[in-house]
């Protein structure tokens, strides 16, 4: 068809996804991006967010739970994520536990020994996983 683009999602530990897709929707630090075949080459950091893969008119979510990068070449999109999971790889129970922990910590912010930034990133990560898994 000539309209499919190859998507690779790679983390330091493994290759999470490697297949041809119709479109990728990602959230970069500057905003949402929809990327199709023959997109202009670019590099941008990604937020901790859900990446959506469109294939055969269905959107599939992937949790980019560690943040990372997106590199676009005309026929290849590479996502370099610190961590990433497909929905069925996510342990929902653990994600909920992490969410609770992070919320508790945020509620006590200002107290000693509470790293607010870290807690809010942890919360973001847990929420991303939960959303991806429950979609």
């Amino acid at each position: 068809m000539g309209t499919a683009v190859r998507l690779k999602i790679v983390t330091p530990e493994r290759v999470v996804y490697d297949d041809s897709v119709d479109m990728v929707v990602a959230r970069g630090v500057e905003g949402e991006l929809g990327i199709l075949y023959d997109h202009m080459p670019m590099v941008t950091p990604l937020q901790v967010s859900i990446l959506k893969i469109k294939k055969n008119n269905v959107f599939y979510p992937v949790a980019i739970s560690g943040g990372g990068f997106l590199e676009v070449q005309p026929q290849l999109i590479t996502v370099l994520a610190d961590t990433a999971e497909l929905p069925d790889e996510i342990d929902l129970e653990r994600a909920y536990a992490a969410k609770k922990r992070a919320e508790e910590r945020l509620a006590r912010k200002g107290e000693e020994g509470i790293d607010e930034k870290r807690a809010s990133i942890a919360l973001q990560r847990a929420l991303t996983r939960i959303r991806a898994a429950e979609k």
Partner: peptide, 14 residues
């Protein structure tokens, strides 16, 4: 497509 892409200009955001 690694070879031909050498000449393509990249955009960086930001």
């Amino acid at each position: 497509e690694r070879v031909q892409e050498q000449e393509i200009l990249y955009r960086f955001e930001p």
